Lab assay of single mutants.
Amino acid sequence: EESQDIKALQKELEQFAKLLKQKRITLGYTQADVGLTLGVLFGKVFSQTTICRFEALQLSFKNMCKLRPLLQKWVEEAD
């Protein structure tokens, strides 16, 4: 059922947002740094506010889903 899928996805997004924040802090990056690095990787800079709202799960579900693969890549590249 679709609502189950969405619930599962939301849970996954929550966990990912936590992971992103932990990783960012561990590596000593600011939210603005992450936004700028996305610009380098994908040619589209994201504001500190956007990263902040992603981490706080304050973006729309659709936006969270759109941003996630980009931030996933950041997490992979950041090591």
Rank of each mutant, 00 (worst) to 15 (best):
E1M: 15
E1I: 02
E1G: 13
E2D: 06
S3K: 08
S3R: 10
Q4M: 10
Q4N: 08
Q4G: 11
Q4H: 11
Q4P: 10
D5P: 13
I6S: 11
I6F: 13
K7C: 10
A8L: 07
A8E: 11
L9D: 06
Q10V: 10
Q10M: 11
K11M: 13
K11A: 09
K11N: 12
K11F: 02
K11V: 08
E12D: 06
E12G: 06
E12K: 15
L13Y: 03
L13H: 09
L13K: 02
L13G: 02
L13C: 01
L13M: 12
L13Q: 02
L13V: 08
E14K: 15
E14H: 11
E14R: 13
E14C: 04
E14A: 14
E14S: 06
E14G: 11
Q15T: 07
Q15E: 13
Q15K: 02
Q15A: 14
F16A: 09
F16V: 01
F16I: 01
F16S: 00
A17C: 15
A17E: 15
K18N: 06
K18S: 14
K18E: 05
K18T: 13
K18G: 09
K18H: 04
K18F: 08
L19A: 04
L19S: 11
L19E: 05
L19C: 14
L19F: 11
L20R: 07
L20M: 04
K21A: 05
K21M: 02
K21Y: 03
Q22W: 05
K23W: 00
K23D: 04
R24L: 00
R24Q: 05
I25W: 06
I25C: 07
I25K: 10
I25G: 01
I25R: 11
T26V: 08
T26C: 11
T26M: 08
T26K: 05
T26N: 15
T26D: 12
L27E: 00
L27A: 02
L27C: 12
L27I: 11
L27S: 01
G28C: 02
G28I: 04
Y29H: 14
Y29F: 01
Y29I: 01
Y29K: 11
T30Q: 02
T30W: 06
T30N: 00
T30H: 05
Q31A: 10
Q31K: 03
Q31Y: 15
Q31E: 15
D33E: 10
D33M: 04
D33C: 01
D33K: 14
D33V: 00
V34L: 08
V34W: 02
G35Q: 11
L36I: 15
L36E: 14
L36Y: 11
L36T: 15
L36N: 14
T37R: 15
T37E: 15
L38S: 06
L38G: 01
L38V: 04
L38D: 01
L38K: 03
L38C: 11
G39W: 01
G39H: 05
V40R: 15
V40W: 09
V40P: 05
L41G: 00
L41D: 08
L41V: 07
F42T: 14
F42I: 04
F42V: 14
F42E: 04
G43P: 07
G43M: 02
K44V: 05
K44P: 07
V45D: 07
V45Q: 12
F46N: 05
F46V: 15
F46C: 15
F46P: 12
F46Y: 08
S47V: 00
S47Q: 09
Q48D: 14
Q48C: 03
Q48T: 02
Q48S: 14
T49S: 11
T49I: 00
T49L: 05
T49C: 03
T49R: 12
T49D: 12
T49P: 07
T50L: 02
T50H: 12
T50M: 08
I51Y: 05
I51R: 03
I51F: 04
C52G: 15
C52E: 13
C52M: 15
C52A: 15
R53M: 03
R53N: 08
R53G: 05
R53E: 11
F54S: 03
F54Q: 00
F54V: 02
F54L: 04
E55I: 06
E55N: 04
A56S: 12
A56P: 06
A56V: 04
L57Y: 14
L57M: 14
L57V: 11
Q58D: 11
L59N: 13
S60D: 14
S60Q: 05
S60L: 08
S60F: 00
S60P: 13
F61S: 04
F61A: 09
F61R: 05
K62S: 12
K62C: 04
K62P: 11
K62M: 14
K62D: 14
K62Q: 12
N63G: 07
N63M: 10
N63I: 08
N63A: 12
M64F: 01
C65S: 05
C65M: 11
C65Q: 13
C65Y: 05
C65F: 14
C65A: 06
K66P: 04
K66L: 13
K66N: 14
K66S: 12
K66F: 12
L67T: 04
L67A: 03
R68V: 03
R68T: 05
R68D: 02
P69V: 05
L70G: 03
L70P: 06
L70Y: 15
L71Y: 05
L71R: 04
L71W: 07
L71T: 08
L71G: 04
Q72K: 11
Q72L: 07
Q72M: 07
Q72I: 10
Q72V: 06
K73N: 05
K73R: 10
K73M: 01
K73E: 03
K73C: 05
W74E: 10
V75L: 14
V75P: 09
V75T: 07
E76H: 11
E76D: 12
E76V: 05
E76S: 09
E77Q: 14
E77K: 11
A78E: 11
A78R: 07
D79C: 04
D79H: 13
D79G: 07
